[in-house]
Design a protein around this nucleic acid. Structure first.
Lengths: 140, 140
DNA sequence: GTTCACCCCGTACCCGGGTACGGAGTCAAG
DNA sequence: CTTGACTCCGTACCCGGGTACGGGGTGAAC
């Protein structure tokens, strides 16, 4: 499977063919070479790249961010320094998201403990009463 | 501040007036009583409710989910059991996101170590070559 | 009694991230 | 050499979550 057609790539990536075209327009996938007929012929690496995109996306990166990351280096030389900076700042963002998420998780947990422990399942749930102010997210 | 107008509520909740109307249409805020003029007069609790909405949203609930949660109980009894189930499943979702994020963070970190340590900043960065497959997400 | 901020409503628009549609060309198998 | 699956392209549409616009009413202060 050295060269793949749209349909195959799409399937490998768990994505619709139109989505590939869409990613191409958005600059996430570079335009592959075409056969005489106009059919796209993707190199095998496109599969990796597509997976990378989906992975990044699942983690909350926007398509623009992903494009930017990938655009750093389509193939060849990107200075390590550049890469390092971007990766570090992305990591910092991730750290923030992690914190925020962990915090929210914690506050949900508190809601459960404070509210539902030892109560009858049918009783009114105090967590939803208008006065209840569970755990205001830390200002950011 | 027993009864508040749209503008005041909006400000208190850090939200635009139109957003209030939008939430009302979506069933997130119940239609408040009106003065003779047609002006909305929100009860003071609306502020809490609005904050609750924004908080839930920040936690990754969609507006529909929030509406559903709130619809359970406009004011009084929501069975604790109901609430508990929903909160638990939301927590599980958050846990998954946390894992994935942590994993990505780790793989970025590895990229930095493997790739950039002891290299000249201007050198081509191997982390971005197509063959490089940083850390395939654990199957889920 | 006019000014000026505030509110009403409906409708239309924006962004992100795709999905669907339809007419036409391609290609491998039978 | 026809069939059926696949591909091309452009354009239009969908959803979620709002935001903007414009014409008109309200109301407190001066």
């Amino acid at each position: 499977m050295a060269r793949v057609r749209s349909g195959q790539l799409a399937e490998a990536g768990g994505v619709h063919v139109e989505t590939l075209r869409y990613y191409e327009r958005r600059g996430l996938l570079e335009s592959p070479p075409r056969r005489g007929s106009g059919y796209r012929e993707y190199p095998a690496e496109a599969v990796q790249r597509l997976r990378l995109i989906k992975q990044a996306q699942a983690l909350g990166f926007t398509l623009d961010e992903i494009a930017e990351l990938l655009a750093l280096n389509p193939h060849a030389a990107v200075a390590c320094g550049d890469m390092e900076d971007r990766v570090r700042s992305k990591m910092a963002e991730l750290d923030e998201k992690l914190d925020a998420l962990a915090e929210l998780r914690g506050s949900l947990e508190r809601v459960l403990c404070e509210c539902c422990d030892g109560r009858q399942a049918q009783e009114a749930c105090p967590a939803l009463s208008p006065q209840h102010d569970p755990a205001p997210a830390r200002r950011r």
